[in-house]
């Protein structure tokens, strides 16, 4: 399956942020999204994940292939590491959580409550969740926040493994992940142009 996005435009709070976003991603490839804060990377990822409708453009890929990882990890503080992962595996119809625990070095923390983990450990657990979804397309929003260098390396290794199995990843990040083979899309120049403001002339978009 190939991921193809054509002329996508996204808006937040009624204000257009990005326009003309186009890219193609083949299986086994990764795309790094770059751009300044507030440029619309999060909004773009949410649109790709199907959480919000785009303003315009086409996305041709299977929505059921998407595993989304946002700013929050979706962890329950009152459940253990294993229970958290097993829940997400069950939701996606899978059972095996061992490889995910191993990939993010969480085996020693299996029976700890997620609420007692440090920020970096939580993040690692949140990323391990991606592996138990069994889905080929990872959409990640700043995945390395609060990770130390060693953990970033673990993450890069997990992404590389995922790509090697024919997966795909779209990652919005500021730091160097150590994935030199990944393509880079800078969304900075794709800032949507606003229609010229004329005080008496506006249509349904109010802008």
């Amino acid at each position: 399956m190939e991921m193809k996005v054509t002329d996508l435009a996204v808006a937040r709070g009624g204000v257009p942020l990005l326009a003309g976003v186009s890219f193609t991603l083949a299986p086994g490839r990764a795309l790094i999204l770059r751009g300044p804060n507030g440029s619309g990377k999060t909004t773009l990822l949410r649109a790709l994940a199907g959480l919000q409708p785009p303003l315009a453009g086409e996305m041709s890929f299977d929505r059921e292939a998407v595993a989304y990882g946002g700013h929050a990890d979706g962890l329950k503080a009152q459940m253990t590491v294993t229970e958290n992962l097993a829940f997400w595996a069950a939701v996606h119809g899978l059972r095996e959580i061992g490889p995910a625990l191993a990939a993010f070095d969480l085996e020693g923390l299996r029976d700890r409550l997620a609420g007692t983990l440090s920020a970096g450990q939580k993040r690692r657990l949140g990323l391990a969740r991606l592996m138990v979804t069994g889905r080929p397309l990872w959409l990640l929003d700043e995945p390395t926040v609060s990770l130390d260098t060693a953990s970033v390396a673990l993450f890069a290794e997990a992404v590389r493994g995922h790509l090697a199995r024919g997966g795909m990843a779209v990652i919005a990040t500021h730091i160097e992940l150590g994935l030199p083979e990944a393509e880079v899309l800078d969304v900075g120049p794709l800032k949507a142009a606003l229609p010229a403001a004329q005080l008496d002339d506006f249509d349904e978009a109010f802008l």
Binding site: G13, G14, V15, L17, L194, A197, F202, A205, F206, L207
Partner: peptide
């Protein structure tokens, strides 16, 4: 009012 809010949002961006 809606138009005004839209223009203010535009201004902020």
């Amino acid at each position: 009012a809606r138009r005004m809010r839209a223009l203010m949002a535009r201004e902020r961006r």
